[in-house]
Design a protein around this nucleic acid. Structure first.
Lengths: 273, 273
DNA sequence: AATTTTTGTATTGCATTATAATACTTTTTA
DNA sequence: TAAAAAGTATTATAATGCAATACAAAAATT
């Protein structure tokens, strides 16, 4: 009867291991535990954690123990709740330091930041999102809760459109199709044909714009960075506040700077096709 | 007889598992693989990776496979070398968002940053190091390769001294003893009794200073943030360039601001003992 | 250009490791 | 104060992860 219980209990696991026998399930579970914590759920007790990641108490126990030993998790001695440790930052730090694009772009971003005194970002694409990987905020900055690691949908951001516009058209189209096209503001471009038109315009002029599409009052101008195969590997953008510039002024002032910086970081001689 | 076989076959592993049978070794190995990459070694082939983390090729194969499936590692299709993906940033991001100290401190840091127009940092202690967890750079910034996640030795930084000075004296002493006291500049404080004196001064005046101790030309003033038990949980510092201020001017201008901000973020009514 | 060596990929039987049940302890709630 | 819930510790079992091996594909060398 013991065996029977076990059998029924593990059916799903057996299936999943069959699907990919090379994959180490313990590792996957450990990451399930780690990624159970975020801004909404900053700490959990063992039972709560176990429930939230779909493990039994024993398993949760072993993984929390392991992750504590490795230093990524700590348990508050009073509340006995688990929380992430600062060592988690090491992981992101490793990526930043190991990434040649970020290292190569750094001086250009700094230069842009100092000459314009506006907010300058480097972003990369991850499926349907862009992720901020390097950021220099101006003192006029609008938005303080965009930090390194923040994700935004590609379709409604200047960097996202700039990157998509340099992908083969059907690739870009696929990404847009997969995207959850939410209307964040009255100015959000969300209709597929409007988005495709934006891509065309971006490809033609060499830079993309997004005015009030995600945040109210945010004017953003971006140009894609291309790798050796002319494949877009990221984007540089400048973001300014509508209170200080009109869209036209912003384009006039910053588009050529952004394009020039993106070209400098690109591993090719000319951004145009 | 089973037990006997176990014993002979895998002596080293048995030892380690005996020491801590609750720990999941696969997870530990996965993290060995992930943390093999950094600025110095941004990418590796399978064999090289296996050698560098002390796994055989089979194991390296399974862990890279697993980590790729989870999205933290990618393999360049041309070079077949592995590298970290931007998903690593998610992990650090989770910590930042889940950490109540960082969230609580944010508005005060922003305020400091805007009013002073100087570089403002929030740091926490991790053993003998401080780690930058939040940072607002001024345009006069000296040092561009300090980013979120950067570690520095506590003993030669203002935030480090500020934090240590609020620990029980023998705790602070133990940390200093464990520290590798490197002389970075001619002004680095590295003798134990000088360091202890710095702690005393910091405790007495409520803020710590570090002038040219790690970077030439860097003047830093820090105050510790205390938790409910008056235990230091981090520090706020302002860093300015010697080209623009003398140490005395910097102290005069910024020490009270830093102390006030740290007190505001602290969960107590008064920074003094 | 051919050969050797190195590196990467795929497969499999075996036994160690991870598992999950259970018992026990402590804390919280009623 | 009792009951319930949460956390901790232990252990037999078998499924998982292991490492050997074979195969394939690039580099490196001749």
């Amino acid at each position: 009867m013991k065996t029977r219980k076990r059998f029924s209990a593990r059916t799903s696991k057996i299936v999943s291991s069959r699907e990919d026998p090379l994959s180490v399930q313990s590792v996957e579970k450990a990451f399930r535990v780690l990624t159970a914590f975020d801004g909404a759920i900053p700490s959990m007790g063992l039972t709560q954690l176990a429930a939230s990641v779909g493990l039994d108490k024993s398993a949760a126990q072993r993984f929390t123990h392991t992750l504590m030993r490795l230093g990524y998790l700590r348990k508050d001695p009073d509340t006995r709740r688990f929380e992430l440790t600062v060592k988690m930052l090491d992981l992101g730090y490793r990526y930043t330091r190991a990434n040649p694009l970020i290292q190569r772009a750094l001086p250009y971003l700094l230069h842009l930041s100092k000459t314009t005194e506006e907010t300058v970002n480097l972003t990369v694409l991850d499926d349907t999102d862009i992720i901020f990987v390097s950021r220099f905020m101006s003192r006029h900055v609008l938005n303080n809760d965009v930090i390194i690691g923040t994700r935004m949908p590609a379709y409604c951001t200047a960097p996202g459109i700039a990157i998509l516009s340099r992908l083969p058209p059907n690739e870009a189209r696929n990404i847009l199709k997969r995207s959850d096209l939410v209307v964040f503001t009255p100015y959000t471009t969300y209709r597929m044909d409007d988005l495709l038109k934006k891509l065309e315009i971006s490809a033609a002029q060499g830079y993309a714009t997004a005015f009030d599409e995600f945040y109210h009052g945010d004017l953003s101008i971006a140009a894609a960075i291309l790798g050796q195969n002319r494949w877009p590997i990221g984007a540089i953008n400048i973001a300014v506040s509508r209170t200080r510039f009109s869209p036209e002024e912003a384009v006039e002032r910053f588009s050529s700077l952004v394009v020039a910086a993106a070209l400098s970081v690109s591993q090719i001689s000319n951004l145009r096709r």
